[in-house]
Nucleic acid binder design. Structure first.
Length: 619
RNA sequence: GGCUCCUUAGCUCAACUGGAUAGAGCAGCUCACUUCUAAUGAGCAGGUUUCAGGUUCGAGUCCUGAAGGAGUCACCA
């Protein structure tokens, strides 16, 4: 039991002793006391007023008095209105310190459950961008947090490697590629293929524009336009029809898709070659971000899944068939619409695939929980998917979660690929590491460090700045990404947190072996001194670590962990400024502060790791 | 138009899920390095939490309505 839980227990026992009322200790809500008042933790007694029929100050006073006598964790108390402010004893602090000094502090033992987390899930026609980075960081953090909470974790992604979009870049390369490859051009594979996707679009636009003034184009406009519709408007609306019915490029791409579906060996070979380029590009980006996956699904393998399972669902009355043979789920009694799950020609839609993939994943992994990290534009889709899986009695259906996150905007507005404002992941990563290098060189704190190690440090600092900037924002909120602010390394940033760690490591490096041995053997119960205000601030933070680990997973909100990292680092920076450590006469005080520092370093390093951020030893 | 989400300091974000006088960072203005890393610390200034009602001991948080923004309502993914 944590020290705070014991304090809660003491309070609950006090309430029952004084008022003969039973109260679950888990019901006792303690908050940190606000700076202006004396005390460390505050117990709000207002909720007791009704049942006890006494005024709030009287209740608080009575509980405080009894508590101060009965609990060894309580030093003193004061009452302001209905707020009982408790000042905890030095024993409380030293036990928090001793708890946090364990290498598994806050980590839950295995709970025997398996959580699958799907994230990233890119398309193979363009490189990863800023939006993917937010997705990846959320998914990765969720996976780390799940591990810390005792789950076995399977990190997974599903790659959108087929369909008309993929055929467009294949078509463009066939027509305009001249046999070039990423190697021959010295370009990363995903960027290379992405360029052909763009080339296709350009060529198509040009083709379309030319067609509009041909005899055919003019005649289509004259016969299909709405009353007095201007040409520009009509042709904007007509684009998809043009692609499907008139465009040489469009028709060729569609033919390619059909050939692909029929298993045409030539097309498949081209497809495999180009996707191979893309994957090697993706892997470079994943490596740069320091993430990996335990399993990968390809849409080309899963896009036919689900059809049989849906057929089965018809007999189980989860779905019904329309006269035209299309299959639907009627979710109106659950406040949703009717949703199609099989087209009238028997082919599947996105929903069918997702049903099938979930079913298949359970067959493969027997996971208890399944989390999808997907943008909030798909909120409704997942609401429907989860309802359908529930009706299909899938065993994991009660433990599905859509970790929905808001779009990343730029200061200039939304990223738009057509306007070329999309922030590319690779470029962003490179720029931020360059920025870290610039800052570090300007400071000149890394003299004597080997060049190779320096680069590693710049990488860690740059990525910390980028990742922290993104992950500190609550997932479901839309966020603004200002490239200028994201390279900041001061204030509420990743490097600020890293700096607290580096300062501690620098101190610990100076200890001789004798002192290190003494620290390992030191029993904090021997420390008889009291705790400085800035030490108590640190301990107050350290105490919350286990709760943060559990809350940030329960709420699927890694920003809680990021904010914890910042608070702890902030408390340490202040302590570092206020208190000396190495040149202290008082050996007990010195050892206590060293242990405190070491605990902070360990907790910082582990908590940052949970949000995907590594710590440098120097900076 | 129906449904869902968002709106907190000039800017970017917090607020332990209903608790005290709403907190940080950035930007601005002061101050502190012969000291364990100044990528730091201390201070000043910055607020009618979009608006109007309601619920109660108590509301940024819950309810109703309004305004502004976004998403979604395809036999697209």
């Amino acid at each position: 039991m944590s020290i705070l839980a014991q304090l809660r227990q003491d309070i609950s026992e006090t309430v029952s002793a004084v008022y003969k009322t039973e109260m679950e200790s888990s019901q006792i809500a303690l908050s940190h006391t606000i700076k202006e008042y004396g005390g460390d933790y505050t117990y709000v007694v207002f909720p007791l007023v009704k049942s006890l029929r006494q005024s709030p100050p009287v209740i608080a006073e009575a509980i405080g008095t009894h508590l101060a006598e009965s609990s060894k964790y309580v030093k003193s108390f004061n009452v302001v209105k209905g707020f009982l402010n408790i000042e905890v004893s030095d024993l409380f602090w030293s036990q928090v310190l001793s708890d946090s000094n364990n290498s598994d502090y806050g980590i839950q033992p295995s709970n025997g459950k398996k959580m699958m987390v799907e994230f990233s899930s890119p398309n193979t026609n363009k490189p990863l961008h800023l939006g993917h980075i937010r997705n990846i960081l959320l998914g990765w953090s969720t996976a780390q947090l799940a591990k810390a909470n005792g789950y076995e974790v399977v990190k997974t992604q599903i790659i959108n490697d087929r369909g008309i979009a993929v055929c467009k870049s294949m078509m463009a390369w066939t027509l305009m590629g001249e046999g070039k490859t990423p190697e021959s051009e010295g370009i990363k594979g995903d960027h290379f293929v992405g360029e052909y996707y763009v080339k296709f679009d350009k060529a198509f636009q040009e083709e379309y524009l030319n067609w509009q003034s041909t005899e055919e184009g003019v005649s289509v406009y004259n016969t299909s336009q709405k009353e007095n519709e201007v040409q520009e408007h009509f042709f904007k609306r007509f684009k998809n029809n043009y692609f499907n019915q008139y465009s040489k490029l469009g028709i060729a791409s569609k033919e390619m898709l059909l050939k692909w579906e029929a298993g045409d060996p030539e097309i498949k070979a081209l497809w495999e070659k180009m996707n191979g380029w893309v994957y090697s590009g993706f892997n470079t980006t994943y490596d740069a971000l320091g993430v990996d996956f335990d399993s990968t699904n390809y849409e080309s393998d899963t896009y036919l899944l689900g059809k049989e399972f849906v057929e089965e669902g018809i007999t189980r009355k989860v779905f019904y068939k329309e006269p035209d043979n299309s299959v639907w789920a009627d979710l109106e009694d659950a406040g949703m619409d009717k949703k199609i799950v099989l087209r009238s020609d028997g082919t599947s839609v996105y929903m069918t695939q997702d049903i099938g993939t979930a079913h298949q994943r359970y067959a493969d992994h027997k996971m208890d929980n399944l989390v999808y990290v997907v943008g909030d534009e798909q909120d409704y889709h997942f609401k429907v998917l989860f309802e359908i899986l529930k009706r299909l009695d899938e065993p994991y259906a009660a433990n599905l979660f859509h970790l929905s996150y808001g779009m990343v905007d730029l200061p200039t507005g939304r990223m738009k690929s057509r306007e070329g404002t999309v922030v590319d992941a690779d470029i962003l990563i490179k720029e931020i590491i360059d920025e870290a290098r610039k800052s570090a060189e300007a400071r000149g704190g890394l003299e004597g460090v080997a060049d190779k190690e320096k680069e590693e440090i710049y990488r860690k600092i740059g990525l910390a700045a980028l990742k922290f900037f993104i992950i500190k924002v609550t997932a479901k909120k839309r966020m603004t990404f200002d490239p200028k602010e994201s390279v900041d390394m001061q204030g509420q940033t990743g490097p600020y947190v890293q700096n607290a760690y580096v300062r501690i490591r620098s101190i610990l490096r100076r200890l001789d072996e004798d002192m290190q041995a003494q620290l390992t053997d030191y029993n904090l119960a021997d420390y008889k001194g009291d705790f400085h205000e800035s030490e108590r601030d640190i301990l107050l933070q350290l105490e919350t670590f286990p709760v943060i680990i559990s809350d940030s997973l329960k709420k699927y909100d890694p920003s809680l962990m990021a904010n914890f990292c910042y608070s702890l680092a902030k408390a340490y920076h202040r302590f570092y400024h206020d208190c000396r450590i190495l040149n202290l006469e008082d050996q007990d005080l010195k050892k206590m502060r060293l242990i405190l520092s070491k605990s902070v370093a360990d907790v910082l390093s582990r908590s940052m790791k949970m949000i995907g951020i590594e710590m440098p030893e120097y900076m």
